[in-house]
Amino acid sequence: MEKLLAEPYDRPIRFDTKVAVLLGEDLAGWQRLNVTGFLISGITASFPQLIGEPYQDADGVGYLAMLGQPVLVFEGSAQLIKQAHERALRRDLAMSIFTSDLFATGNDLDNRAAVAKISTGDLDLVGIAVHGPRNAVDRVVKGARMHP
Rank of each mutant, 00 (worst) to 15 (best):
R139I: 00
F38C: 04
P54D: 12
K82G: 02
A78I: 00
A45P: 03
R90F: 10
G37P: 06
V61C: 04
L22W: 09
S46F: 02
I13S: 07
K117E: 11
A84N: 08
A129R: 01
S41T: 08
M95Y: 06
L23W: 03
G106S: 15
T99I: 09
R87A: 15
E86C: 07
Y9I: 15
T36L: 07
L89Q: 14
A116G: 05
V19S: 13
G127N: 07
G68D: 07
L27I: 05
A78E: 10
T105P: 00
D26N: 13
Q49I: 01
G37H: 02
V130M: 05
S119Q: 08
E25L: 09
H131N: 10
G143D: 04
V140P: 00
I97L: 11
P12C: 12
G29Y: 05
S119T: 11
E75W: 04
A58K: 11
F98N: 02
L33K: 04
Y9A: 15
E86M: 14
S77V: 00
F38N: 03
E2N: 11
S119C: 09
R145A: 13
V115T: 06
V115E: 03
D108H: 09
F15V: 15
R112T: 03
H85D: 06
E2R: 10
Q79F: 03
I40M: 12
M1N: 09
H85V: 01
S96D: 02
D138K: 13
T44M: 11
L39K: 02
N34C: 10
V73I: 15
L64W: 01
S46H: 09
L64M: 06
F98T: 04
M146G: 08
K117T: 08
V61F: 07
A28H: 15
A28W: 14
I43Q: 10
P8N: 09
L80Y: 09
G68I: 05
L93V: 03
L64T: 08
Y55D: 05
Q31C: 10
E25K: 11
G60D: 03
E25R: 08
F47N: 13
Q69T: 13
P8G: 02
R32A: 13
P54E: 14
H147V: 11
L67R: 04
P54S: 12
H131E: 09
I118H: 01
L125H: 07
N111W: 00
G62D: 09
R32F: 04
G121A: 15
V21H: 07
V126I: 13
S46T: 06
V21I: 14
L123T: 00
N135T: 11
G76R: 06
P148D: 05
L123K: 00
L67N: 06
G42M: 04
D108A: 05
A88H: 06
A144W: 00
G143I: 04
R11L: 13
Y63A: 10
A113D: 02
E2W: 04
Y55P: 01
G60L: 04
